[in-house]
Amino acid sequence: MGRDDPRLSRGSNPSPPTAPHRRWRTGPYWLALQIALSGSLLLLFVLPILALFTFAPLGQIFNEYANAQVREALWLTFFASGMAVLAAVIFGIPLGYLLARRSFPGRTVIESLVALPVVVPHLLVGLGLFLLLLPGSLLYHWTQALGIPVYDTIWGVVLVMVFVSAPYTVLASELSFRAVDGRVIEASRSLGAGAGTAFLTVSLPLALRGIVAGLLLSWARAVSEIGGLLVLALVVYPGGIYDGPVTSTISVYIYDLFGTGDLKGAAAVSSLFLLIAFALFLLVRVGERSGWLPWRRGDLSP
């Protein structure tokens, strides 16, 4: 049957009757609804950011970077949040693996415990840690003896950040490890890989994308922390691994500016921070897309 067969020509085929409900589902109304709903949320994201950028003159935003105090606060924020992410890697990923792969009594309780820091107000976290490490307590003596005092030091900042941010890594790791097909792991064991090798060559590479997403969330959460810091580490004095001037994290610094009525300054520093954070996230996403960040390929080994 060729193209010219009259039976196949358009003319002899009556067009199928159109069902109104079908046109609605696939038609412009449905698309318009999607755009309207998604757009509203995006607008909510964008408008406050625009307000920040328009409130402070553009020149001031870049001038703030020349301000040594701001630079120090930025450095402290990124350094402490980096430490918190490192802690999430070292302690959070194993916990996620444990919850995904082992069944043991009390697992549900542990899972709820892990989710707890996500839901409690963070001022409460600071207060809890404050009470735990109160001068005179056993932990206070230990931390002092180990040279890691927490009140108004960088260790306090890191401690609060780990508390509020690590659950994202644990939860993401648990879900990602659970999604790895157990039969693939069994195949690797049977092919000669010990439990550790199977973890490093199969489980971890296959779960990596999800884990990295969790780590990014953890980092974002750590960077934006303020509630716990207001109680435990409002300002940071030099000591331990920090030897700079007395400073605070960028969120506390902005809160301070706001508290003293310097709205323009607060908006300018906020805008600067937003630019840096946005650039970092964009870099990671582009890296994933283009494939030069390895977890896109799900494979770290050469």
């Binding site: 097909d181 039969r183 693939v184 069994e186 195949a187 690797s188 064991r189 049977s190 092919l191 000669g192 890989a193 010990g194 199969v202 590479p205 296959l206 390929r297 799900g298 494979d299």
Partner: peptide, 18 residues
């Protein structure tokens, strides 16, 4: 399992997707 010198092919083959 890794000591048994078995070639075990599980249901679904267990090929490494990565």
């Amino acid at each position: 399992p890794e000591e048994r010198a078995l070639g075990y092919v599980p249901q679904g083959l267990g090929l490494f997707p990565h």
